[in-house]
Design a protein around this nucleic acid. Structure first.
Lengths: 244, 244
DNA sequence: CGGCCGGTTGATCTCAGTCAATGCGTGTGG
DNA sequence: CCACACGCATTGACTGAGATCAACCGGCCG
């Protein structure tokens, strides 16, 4: 079910915050001008459903602001998050008319949307978009496989540390080696992402706090003075550096 | 380490068994002719390593015959299979020079290989290959996400049933609703794929046999008289039909 | 004030992991 | 030809990490 929230003011592509990372990253000025004519912004409040699993998907979109989740479910209600969409990430698949996943706004969310058919046409005309979409899909595939390693082989503590690390690496860095951030996910969403229960997530966060690896500010705020230490807890082979 | 096995006789692209499903599926006769000039076949015995994790990857390739596995590992040796490559599946990524996964021949394996630079050039010249690669990458992404649901939320019995179902659906169907196949994977490889131990895999296979869901012929042969029943055990929402 | 929602904490249970022994088929060397 | 070892799979006994069930806490809103 699409919840209709008033569209926020349209931003010109040239000034768009995700201009250089989204599916349109490689487009030139002319192409952007064309995109400007067919795009539409729409917003959702945190918790609202954007698309239901199995529902018709008559659009493609980029996340402009906020955070959305992709989840798959079994009949009996067990659910697993299979993707976490941050600004510049893409929703939709050329040649596919129904959504294989449920899409939910994790925080307040704004999408830059294209109706399906015009977008298909765009893909045919603009090689820059096809190229960028391939790159982004391959990045998603790598991320999904990394997540498979986490789901299949990491302990609860390592899983929680890995997620915190992902969020912290995307956020403000303070003095050398430290960072703080607001979690975009509730405990329930974290559990769905990690293949755990909310109780276990809560216990592991508490444990990491008691062990001095992180400190908390309220339910959503986390701070970590030593990302290398956190990376160690996450079972990572490498360093605590920021992603590119 | 690449183990050098004598190349098997080169097959003309036109007569290639994976002609219509591989990365070259959309190519026309001229394009195939060009491919013919730059490809090379190479074979590996079951168990041999094709590429090590983190090693330089100076080629792209399609699986012509046999079955290969992609695995990611943690420092302490825990490993998770993140992909199972069957004939027509693709190895390698444009713009990436090192392998993020270990590639191992699960059965005797033959690849159709292209050196990296010529393949990059090909991608630039032949939109048909780019298009097909995008399609295949998106299919892989869907498969990876399906696997995330399995790893995060399914029980050991459901996991094993799911894997058997995948193998059986790819194989010969007998009378309505039944199928039999030779597993391309050892118990160890199955465990790596399912995020389980070999003992648990073995126990669950035994349990499915004792419950009359499947019958075994030796270590690798499995038969299932009722794929719908097996699909039920796998926790699938839908039917027991063959994949496209 | 009271109910609700999200999160934490505690007690107990259970499924899958661990450790260890055994079975079975195959190849090898005396 | 047999004896043995080796690789792979099975089976059993026990353990433990994380799930389950349940109580409780604190902030927020009507």
């Amino acid at each position: 079910m699409i919840v209709h929230v008033p569209q926020i003011g349209r931003v010109q592509c040239e000034r768009c915050p995700i201009r250089h990372r989204a599916v349109c990253a490689k487009c030139d000025a002319d192409e952007l001008a064309h995109l400007d004519t067919i795009k539409a912004y729409r917003s959702w409040k945190a918790g609202e459903t954007v698309v239901m699993e199995g529902e018709a998907l008559d659009f493609a979109a980029s996340v402009v602001a906020g955070c959305a989740t992709l989840t798959r479910s079994l009949e009996d209600g067990r659910t697993q998050m299979v993707g976490l969409l941050m600004p510049s990430d893409f929703i939709g698949r050329p040649g596919r008319a129904t959504a294989p996943y449920e899409v939910v706004a994790a925080t307040d969310l704004t999408l830059c949307m294209f109706r399906r058919e015009p977008f298909q046409a765009l893909l045919a005309e603009m090689p820059h978009i096809r190229e960028r979409l391939l790159e982004m899909s391959l990045d998603e595939l790598d991320a999904a496989r990394e997540w498979m390693l986490l789901l299949g082989r990491k302990t609860a503590r390592e899983k929680v540390a890995s997620l915190l690390l992902i969020v912290l690496r995307r956020s403000t860095l303070d003095t050398a080696g430290g960072a703080h951030a607001e979690l975009p996910l509730s405990r329930e969403a974290m559990a769905a992402y990690l293949g755990l229960t909310i109780e276990t997530v809560s216990r592991q966060i508490t444990a990491l706090r008691k062990d001095g690896v992180i400190t908390l500010q309220g339910n959503r705020g986390i701070e970590c003075g030593d990302l290398f230490a956190l990376a160690g807890e996450a079972g990572e082979d490498f360093d605590g550096s920021v992603i590119s």
